[in-house]
Simulated assay, not measured.
Amino acid sequence: MKKAILFDLDGTLLNTLTDLTNAINYMLSHFNFGTMTEEGVRRLLGNGARQLVELAIGEEVSKADFETYYNFYDAYYQAHSEEATAPYEGIPEVLEAFKKRGYRLAVISNKQDAAVKQLIKRQFPGLFEFALGVTEDGIKKPDPRMVEKVLKAMDLKPNEVYLVGDSEADIETGKSAKLEVVACLWGFRDMKDLAPLKPEFIVGKPYDLLKVI
């Protein structure tokens, strides 16, 4: 019997694309790289902030320069992470419905841990029991150890949990951790990206989650 649902954050619960794009372009412009469209940034998301910066730069740079670029991006994003960010339409109501059904809710994200906890506290007060982002050990999805951290903290077994996410990393994480996966199409990937990975369910709108879970 399922007891809990682990949600990805960016592209699943929150539409963070505009704020992420603005932060990336602020960094790229400052260091005289070419800027990107939102669609271009969308295709790079899902594997954490450091990879996002690396892919956005798009060329080989020294480790020292990369750290400069990344820290510049990160500082800007932390200060501007909620200017345009908001839950996708229907998400708050869906979460409330799951809570009423007795599900325990958690967030597992490749965003920095501090940012995850800040966004969850402000955007979804009282809805989530646990939230985890990337910490100093660098473990991130699709590494199943990230799920193991959450399950241990919540005293759950894999067969008691769904994972809901919008990216290849989410599906791969769920499969490697032996969770049932629900892939969603309102985020940063399309059907052609997710269907070949064969998640247990694919849903098109937030309210569809209530039909499959």
Rank of each mutant, 00 (worst) to 15 (best):
177 A>C: 14
116 V>T: 13
138 G>Q: 01
199 P>T: 03
123 Q>M: 15
135 T>G: 03
32 N>L: 04
15 N>M: 05
211 K>A: 14
143 D>W: 01
140 K>L: 00
99 K>Q: 15
132 L>M: 07
170 D>R: 12
137 D>M: 08
160 E>W: 08
170 D>Q: 14
54 E>P: 02
73 Y>G: 04
116 V>S: 06
208 D>P: 03
26 Y>M: 10
29 S>K: 10
199 P>E: 00
130 F>M: 04
54 E>G: 08
117 K>E: 14
194 L>H: 04
194 L>R: 02
41 V>E: 10
128 F>P: 00
96 E>C: 11
112 Q>R: 13
87 P>A: 12
31 F>K: 11
69 Y>F: 14
72 F>L: 12
136 E>R: 09
192 K>Q: 14
183 A>F: 09
142 P>F: 05
147 V>W: 01
10 D>C: 09
2 K>G: 11
186 W>A: 02
174 G>Y: 07
172 E>C: 13
26 Y>Q: 11
189 R>E: 05
187 G>P: 00
1 M>N: 13
170 D>Y: 12
77 Y>F: 14
213 I>K: 05
132 L>Y: 02
196 P>S: 02
28 L>D: 07
19 D>M: 02
157 K>S: 15
114 A>Y: 05
108 I>V: 15
206 P>T: 01
2 K>P: 13
172 E>Q: 15
120 I>N: 00
48 G>S: 07
40 G>D: 14
183 A>S: 14
156 L>G: 03
53 V>M: 10
109 S>Q: 12
96 E>G: 08
84 A>G: 08
213 I>N: 00
180 E>D: 15
162 Y>K: 10
54 E>K: 12
76 Y>T: 03
163 L>W: 08
91 I>A: 02
27 M>Y: 02
33 F>Y: 15
190 D>A: 10
73 Y>R: 01
153 A>T: 11
30 H>C: 09
72 F>I: 06
87 P>S: 12
199 P>M: 05
211 K>R: 14
205 K>T: 05
145 R>Q: 07
107 V>R: 00
136 E>Q: 10
102 G>H: 13
157 K>Y: 14
42 R>K: 15
182 V>C: 09
85 T>I: 04
28 L>F: 07
191 M>P: 04
150 V>P: 04
70 Y>Q: 06
80 H>I: 04
56 A>R: 00
23 A>C: 02
190 D>C: 09
174 G>Q: 09
198 K>C: 06
202 I>C: 06
155 D>Q: 15
66 F>A: 10
135 T>W: 01
102 G>W: 11
206 P>L: 00
199 P>Q: 00
71 N>G: 08
200 E>L: 03
160 E>C: 09
149 K>R: 14
188 F>W: 11
181 V>W: 02
90 G>M: 04
24 I>D: 01
43 R>D: 12
177 A>Y: 10
23 A>G: 07
31 F>D: 08
156 L>W: 09
91 I>L: 11
79 A>I: 07
204 G>C: 02
144 P>E: 02
162 Y>I: 09
158 P>T: 11
198 K>P: 01
155 D>A: 15
20 L>A: 02
89 E>C: 07
105 L>P: 04
14 L>A: 06
209 L>K: 02
161 V>Q: 07
62 S>G: 15
81 S>T: 08
23 A>D: 05
